[in-house]
């Protein structure tokens, strides 16, 4: 027996029509609020870019993240060194072959680096199902009692590619044309900054905030770092008015070369 297309059509439509709709005005208001935030960030980004162009052109790539950090917070925007060295340097739209993937240092060494760079206590690796062959490693830590997570994984999951999926390029994580917080690093890596927003989710208080950053490296690693203002992602207590790491600190973590052997 095969599924006729009109059967799926009917099932999807009827199920969709049966959904209880949320408060539409609330969704629209939320969209407008997020849209205004995006426009503000875009204006800040444009202003920063102008300063960088007027300044030393060769240093622009390093200047932009520093200034971004100063906008986020006046506290400790540590020097940021985007990862410009590596086996390949090129376009963010080119999928890196598997053989250029840099090997990682041992998990213990990664945990120690997280401690060193953030002052975190109690950094530990969390078991992640690795059956997808994407070599995931996940670490949880606590910075001044605030929850922090760091994850690295190979974004070209071999199982997906073997299943007919297309190998991904660094550009898969975001598009600068539609996301003002999406940038391309000089080596072709792509980086998305997501500044302070509510953690969200079922039963999570609106005072729970997070700041996150995602990097797709030019050679195939995806690094996600998230800092919270609470002791846990979904439960716990609020310990700071803002997430405990600045955007500059998140970026320093993501772009560090310390993860690679």
């Amino acid at each position: 027996m095969t599924i006729p297309d009109h059967g799926v059509d009917l099932l999807l439509r009827r199920t969709a029509d049966d959904l209880a709709l949320p408060d539409i005005d609330r969704l629209v208001a939320g969209g407008v609020s997020r849209g205004r935030t995006r426009r503000r960030r875009a204006r800040i980004g444009a202003a920063v870019a102008s300063v960088a162009v007027i300044g030393v052109v060769g240093a622009a790539a390093a200047v932009v993240p520093r200034l971004g950090g100063e906008v986020d917070s006046a506290r400790d925007p540590r020097p940021v060194q985007p990862a410009t060295s590596g086996p390949t340097a090129g376009s963010p739209d080119v999928a890196p072959p598997a053989d250029v993937l840099r090997p990682l240092v041992a998990p213990d060494e990664m945990a120690q680096t997280i401690r060193d760079m953030t002052g975190a206590s109690d950094v530990h690796e969390v078991f992640v199902d690795g059956s997808g062959k994407d070599l995931p490693r996940l670490f949880y830590g606590s910075v001044r009692s605030g929850f922090v997570s760091f994850r690295i994984r190979w974004y070209n999951n071999p199982l997906v590619v073997e299943d007919g999926g297309q190998p991904l390029a660094p550009s898969h994580i975001c598009q600068p044309a539609v996301e003002p917080d999406c940038t391309t690093l000089p080596d072709g890596s792509r980086l998305l900054r997501e500044d302070v927003h509510q953690s969200g989710g079922t039963g999570v208080p609106p005072t729970f905030l997070e700041r996150s950053l995602t990097l797709a490296t030019h050679d195939g690693w995806q690094i996600d770092v998230i800092a919270y203002n609470s002791t846990g992602e979904k439960e716990g207590v609020v310990v700071a008015p803002e997430p405990v790491l600045t955007m500059a600190e998140l970026e320093a973590l993501a772009t560090s070369d310390a993860w690679y052997a």
């Binding site: 969709a16 029509d17 969704l27 969209g31 849209g35 003002p180």
Partner: peptide, 28 residues
């Protein structure tokens, strides 16, 4: 929202997706 729910499979993520989408349309 209906499309978002079919993509996400739950109401909370669907609402989040719709608001992100509206934000992008708002900017444009």
């Amino acid at each position: 929202y209906r499309s978002a729910w079919m993509l996400c499979g739950d109401a909370h993520r669907a609402e989040d997706l719709v608001q992100d989408t509206l934000a992008k349309v708002f900017v444009r």
